[in-house]
Write a protein that binds this DNA or RNA. Structure first.
Lengths: 107, 107
DNA sequence: TAAATATATGAAACTTATTTCATATGAAAA
DNA sequence: TTTTCATATGAAATAAGTTTCATATATTTA
């Protein structure tokens, strides 16, 4: 007996996807996938303003997609590999088939 | 040698996530997960206005997440199980750990 | 302890997405 | 062949999300 109904509320999914549905946040995630960095470093690498980066990191952290570690006056952020890796793999698989079609219409 | 860099452009991911980052579209996907339905039927089940549903189905189809099949004057929509199933599984796994935290702050 | 550095945050300005409404198109039924 | 039913679509109205700016807080260094 397989249940086609979702186990979590729609709202939870919606928040999850919304968190990733933003180019700035995806940039941050990809930067952090290489290695942990503090806010200032992230700003440099991403070439983005500090307050913008902080706002987005906060959201990512709040949704469990990155972790924050205090170190003196610095805050080091790391990506939640456990979530992000399999997720991006699922999506890559989908993209392989539909990416062109998707990107064609937009911009 | 494992590449931590993504294979697809950020933009593609962003579009992918945006497509799912909407409660109405998630509703439609969940309805279609049970079985294919035409637009009128979807409207009834979801209790949503026809034009709203059509707008969203169009986007879902455009992004390869549902398929459309003509049948007389009806248009039957089916969910792309191949994409949606593993995707939602990844997310459920993440949710199991972070859902409470996430939902606590919002609403 | 005053100045400097790192990060966070609230709110306004701005941008993008969603919904609604009116109407168009296309197929089938009368 | 007109009417009805099913679906689609453009555009205005509305809502939600993002960025910026000014400033607050916290930690170190001088």
């Amino acid at each position: 007996m397989d249940s086609p109904k979702p186990k979590m509320g729609k709202r939870a999914y919606q928040l999850f996807f919304s968190t990733l549905a933003n180019e700035t946040r995806l940039t941050l995630i990809n930067i952090l996938r290489q290695k942990p960095l503090n806010v200032t470093q992230i700003c440099e690498v991403a070439n983005l303003e500090q307050s913008l980066v902080s706002h987005h990191l906060k959201m990512l952290e709040h949704h469990g997609m990155v972790f924050k570690k205090k170190e003196g006056k610095f805050r080091y952020y790391t990506v939640n590999e456990k979530t992000i890796k399999p997720l991006l793999e699922s999506i890559d698989a989908h993209m392989k088939e539909y990416c062109c079609k998707i990107l064609a219409g937009k911009r």
